[in-house]
Each structure stands twice: as C-alpha cells, then as structure tokens.
C-alpha cells in the first residue's frame, strides 16, 4: 500500500516536494486507522448476534475489540513506515517519542466513536454505508493528502474545526516536521477523546439492555 502510494504520487503525479511522500505516509497511517476502526466497529454488535443470544456479555467489548484489532495493524504499519523513513533519509525522526502520547489518544478517540456508531448501527442499519460515504468526504476535508500549511490561513482555520485534523497533526508534527505537537493540539485532542467517550458511553448505557431485542 505504501509502495503504491509512493509510486503513484512521486512518479505518476510528479509531486516535486521530496518530503511530500513522507508527509503523505505519516498522515495516511493514522487516518487509515481511524477510518478502519470506526467502520469495523459499526457492525461489531450486529455481527455478534448469535453470541449475544446465547451468552450475557457487556456489549461495549465488541467495538473495543475491533479498535484493538485495527490498532495492531496500525502499530505494525508504523514500524514499517519507520523503516521506510530510515531507508529514505538514512536517519530516524528525532521526535518520534511523541507518538507514545499520540497513539493512545487516537486509539481511545476511535474507541469512543466506535462505541457510538456500533449502537447507532443497531437502530439504523445503513449506518455502515452512510459512514463510508461520510469518511470519504471527511478524508478530503482533513489534511491527509496535503499538509495543512500549504493552505491560505483562512482555510487553515476551517480545517482546524475538523476533529480529525488534530489527530493527524499529532503524528505529522513529530514525525514529519520534527517539532512537538503544541499543547493546544494535545488539549483539543484530549477534549475530543473525552467527548467521543461521553457520547458513546451515554448511548451505550442507555440502549445496552434494549439492543438484544432489536438485533
């Protein structure tokens, strides 16, 4: 996947900036994780119907399981990316240690969103299709294919209203720009994480006991 992207953008589209490919890869990884884990969580409860009919289990574990599964893929891709980075630049990104904070933040945020959509999907079965459309639109509105600072300042402000922007920056800033993600980014990301859990946990506790009758 990374190799295809690297060839497509550098050779075919002739993007000149030599660092672009590094930016793309390090923004794409957290984005893919967010996208995959939330979409997989959506169906997690309805897919476990046979299990839920024969055992009592807290429903919250199903979306969390999906997020954990995506997290493994994500962590492995990060290592692959670091190898690529090393081969490309013959050094490691010095501020890489910041992702020790970034990684749990995005994982917990995704889990909150995942819980939210998993309950929604029980009551609105086409949530999964709506989500994939939504994520495609969201993808272009998030600085994944383009770095945030190539935009005019006005647009930058709008993109900062997008929650995903902050989570992407938690990765691109330490890895690509070699700077620490500001306290501002951390604060917003933490706030969003809490918000996603409040929303997810509210919906889950409210519907947990009713879900079985709607599967």
């Amino acid at each position: 996947m990374m190799a295809v992207m690297a060839i497509a953008f550098t050779q075919i589209l002739k993007v000149k900036s030599e660092d672009y490919i590094l930016y793309l890869l390090c923004s794409l990884l957290p984005w893919t994780f967010l996208n995959e884990s939330v979409e997989a969580s959506a169906n997690s409860i309805i897919n476990s119907e046979p299990l839920l009919r024969s055992q009592y289990l807290p429903k919250i574990i199903f979306p969390i399981k999906e997020v954990a599964y995506s997290m493994v893929t994500f962590t492995l891709s990060l290592f692959a990316f670091l190898l690529f980075y090393f081969l490309y630049k013959f050094k490691f990104p010095l501020k890489i240690y910041y992702i020790i904070i970034s990684l749990p933040l995005i994982v917990i945020f995704s889990a909150g969103l995942g819980i939210l959509v998993s309950v929604m999907t029980v009551y609105i079965r086409d949530t999964q299709y709506l989500l994939s459309v939504l994520f495609r639109a969201w993808f272009y509105l998030t600085p994944v294919l383009y770095p945030l600072d190539i935009l005019p300042p006005d647009y930058q402000f709008y993109l900062l209203l997008n929650p995903a922007t902050h989570f992407i920056q938690l990765f691109t800033e330490p890895i690509h720009k070699n700077i620490s993600p500001g306290i501002f980014t951390y604060a917003i990301a933490t706030g969003l994480t809490i918000a996603s859990w409040v929303a997810g946990a509210y919906l889950m506790t409210r519907y947990e006991k009713k879900i079985i009758f709607r599967l």
Partner: peptide, 11 residues
Amino acid sequence: VPLMTTGIGFN
C-alpha cells in the same frame, strides 16, 4: 452457565 439451542456462542 446457559446452554441455549444456539450453542454457547460459537464463532
């Protein structure tokens, strides 16, 4: 421990 006709919840 419930054992329903659906089984224990097999995957």
